[in-house]
Design a protein around this nucleic acid. Structure first.
Lengths: 109, 109
DNA sequence: TGTCGTACTACATCTGTCGTAGTAATTGCA
DNA sequence: TGCAATTACTACGACAGATGTAGTACGACA
């Protein structure tokens, strides 16, 4: 299991990755992250939804309702914006640097 | 440059790494981190010193004064404890998992 | 004598994460 | 049909780690 402080600052990136292929909503994204990480990382609900708020405020995603399911379950779907894509790319680049740097401080003992 | 949220949770690990070889003190550790990371990560002073406090509170390091320089500059030296070494090893293992997981969400576009 | 580098400490603030709790609809199954 | 589990959220308060700002104090160098 991964501690939250480790992945902190990358939750947004994981969410954006999930939106690259297609629009999605909270629960689905949550499950997909869980599956893709092979159960090694489970994002808390509150973390997920507060990330949505932040991402939308920053213009990286935008929310909408699907018309074909307008009654009943009331799912909020999210779509990544061009700014979100740019941000995702930056975070990916940053991640490469981070890996290089942190690996200099890792020693097998 | 690396954002703080990325490396958050690993500041302690970087510091412990610096203490593996020999005892050291704030300023020196700070400079060594800077150098080893090739200027890609510069730990803020306040971050560094609050990490020392936390690490000592958790029993991962312990502080002392060198007798041969007991007057004058008053440097606080730190030494890693066996518990600190264990903690360091755990963080290294966790880091491997974190890399694996995050890399699943990284795509070159 | 004054500035720069060293070596800290104090304090208040911010951000992201988390715990707890609660709402409400839909689905599974007995 | 009835009740639990799952889905799909929202609200609120707390906390930890990082940061900004500021200030102290000593030594070296010019």
């Amino acid at each position: 299991m991964i501690s939250s402080d480790v992945i902190r600052g990358y939750n947004d990136t994981l969410i954006l990755y999930m939106l690259l292929e297609r629009d999605s909503y909270g629960y689905e994204i949550s499950k997909n992250i869980r599956t893709l990480s092979e159960e090694k990382y489970i994002m808390k609900e509150t973390t997920l939804y507060s990330a949505f708020t932040r991402l939308e405020k920053n213009g990286y995603i935008h929310s909408f309702f699907k018309e074909e399911e307008s009654f009943g379950k009331r799912r909020t779907y999210y779509r990544i914006t061009p700014e979100g894509l740019m941000y995702y790319r930056e975070k990916c680049a940053e991640w490469q640097v981070t890996q290089e740097v942190v690996n200099k401080f890792i020693k097998e003992l």
